[in-house]
Design a binder for these strands. Structure first.
Lengths: 353, 353
DNA sequence: TTGTAAGCGTTATCAC
DNA sequence: GTGATAACGCTTACAA
């Protein structure tokens, strides 16, 4: 029997207002079935005591925590932060609370995070990617709540729902675009494939890219995978340096992330290599930096915030809400697509050369 | 009386293992006071049923939620994401869970977020800045849990603890640095001061900067505050364009964030203005991008991740932990300081001119 | 080493 | 409109 709480409880409020706890509970829940005077008296008591509802107890009793578990690879990358932002905004007025965790791109972290989050009894779980450990898959399937996999779709069946795009297809599109510009000696930059740490989506993009190069009869020798997951500025610059030092003449380079592409761009700048004059650089993700740098970065555009927003709308329809009718049953897969954003870092291959 | 849960409870595990729920609870808590065989039997039952502990109930009963509430202005900015990361890492093995919320730099959002988070009964609350609404201050003081204000310190007394640095002093240091390089016609870039949306820390930096300019007898007319909070790439570029268009000759510019400084740098590049040849640019924050761009950005360095780490260590000492001795009582204020990082975007004023 | 009893602060349910 | 009662699934405190 723990020592009595320092904070006022609903009982304290009820006592002060001269009603039963149940009536206070009704006021908290915004029920209209309370007499206006009673409500005022209760609100006065709440203010007087500085009462703050205990949602832990409320959650246990009502069996609704209002938590949405969200698991992403990293927070440090604006992409997933944007998605979390979109999700938060979509959920803003609904009273749901995001429970955010990140995996550092490690499957083992993801697995333990899923368990930890499930212990908090979220009403839904949102996580990046379609690849999980076996134990993770079992937990997700047995969780009894909506599961939404994001940032990828099209290749495999989702556990529950999926909101994303085809990473493989986006990689293929990148390759086709560079080929269409007349480039032939094409390179690509991706991260090292680790044991536990994986950027599955970046790898899928590289896979699609490689496929198209091969189909076009072009060499895939200029595809480098080096640097820690996730590849950032410095990793992109280092990979570019490696390409430049060892791969011979080069027409164009695709990086699996704008961060790496920007690093590559800066490496070119440092070496006095004209972009796009003598080398085209194509990024991925449409990060804000690509729009601002000089030259502006051509990229494959993904609307990260929109992914979050759509997940929020999906959840609002899936979860029992006070809004009543939630429309038709949602489809399992939402493909938000991608688009090629042509800016200043890509150009047709010069006629001479 | 809600419908019986679909998930197995501790009772189910206990029944299957032929023990009382209390013994299962002990196993979950990692108590050594359980016979090895009993433990094995219970773990087998847990695995067989796919039992996942209900921390909602555990929290209510034990009065320990394991939540640390964390409120930052934005997640989209790598700075606060880094701090959250540092905090998470410091807390990783302790079993505490971050409850992250962001205010969009709005005091009203902060206030409602504090209330929402307090309802979840966190064991500590961490939030950016020392400025809060009156109601927020009241809630924080009455919360009965450790309060840690971060990213600023030195000017006011913290509610509980503070981990940060003096933003005013950092602005002063920025001005002194540019003056010491010989610059006289000095500008600065900050965001618009909104009604509800405030970047108090950025404003404080600008205040310190302005003070020193004034003390040195230099004009403060080149200090522009425009663009939405928080100032990012595009805002910095626009402010730089404005300065260049209207402020006449300019020796150097300080931006209250590296993001804005990078935008300013790119604007110069677009206009063919040599940096640092004819204009020095100084940023703030030591974001990764400043280290990678060309020219590399001189900046005021703050170790964002370290702030989070220190908060985590502070909390570990403050909170009742299984570790027993937590060392001496922590001091109220931890100043992590800042340092001037000289890179390629600043240079002494050319002798001629 | 294990079990019993009571209760954490709220809400569902049903009676008044 | 309002209240009494019984949970929600777990842990504290103490007994055995």
């Amino acid at each position: 029997m723990p020592k009595r709480s320092l904070r006022p409880t609903m009982r304290d409020v009820a006592r002060l207002a001269g009603v039963s706890p149940m009536t206070v509970s009704r006021v908290q829940a915004g029920s209209a079935l309370v007499a206006p005077e009673t409500r005022d008296r209760i609100n006065a008591a709440i203010a007087a005591l500085g009462y703050v509802e205990d949602k832990v107890a409320a959650s246990l009793s009502s069996r609704r925590t209002g938590f949405i578990a969200t698991i992403v690879p990293t927070l440090t990358n604006s992409t997933f932060a944007d998605t979390a932002h979109g999700l938060t905004e979509a959920l803003r007025r609904s009273g749901y609370q995001l429970l955010i965790g990140y995996t550092r791109y490690r499957m083992s972290d993801e697995e333990s995070l899923i368990r930890t989050m499930l212990e908090r009894r979220p009403e839904a779980i949102v996580l990046a990617g379609m690849s999980h450990t076996e134990a993770a898959g079992t937990m997700l399937r047995g969780a009894g709540i909506p599961v939404v996999e994001i940032w990828d779709c099209g290749e495999a069946d989702p556990i529950g729902y999926a909101v994303g795009f085809s990473n493989i297809e986006s990689g293929r599109a990148a390759a086709r675009h560079l080929i269409a510009l007349g480039h032939r000696r094409i390179g690509a930059i991706g991260p090292t494939i680790g044991d536990d740490a994986h950027d599955f989506r970046g790898e899928a993009r590289l896979t699609g890219f490689t496929e198209v190069l091969r189909e076009a009869g072009l060499s895939t020798d200029r595809i480098v995978q080096r640097g820690d997951v996730p590849l950032s500025f410095a990793g992109g610059a280092a990979a570019m340096a490696h390409l430049l030092d060892t791969a011979g003449p080069l027409d164009a380079v695709f990086a699996i992330s704008d961060l790496a592409a920007f690093g590559a761009l800066m490496e070119c700048q440092r070496r006095g290599i004209a972009v796009p004059g003598s080398l085209s650089v194509l990024g991925f993700g449409d990060f804000e930096i690509g729009d601002q740098c000089v030259p502006a970065l051509s990229t494959i555009g993904i609307d990260a915030e929109d992914i979050g927003r759509r997940v929020g709308e999906l959840l609002l329809r899936l979860l029992p809400g006070d809004a009543g009718d939630h429309g038709p049953t949602p489809t399992a897969v939402t493909d938000v697509g991608f688009k090629i954003v042509e800016r200043g870092s890509t150009a047709p291959r010069p006629v001479s050369t």
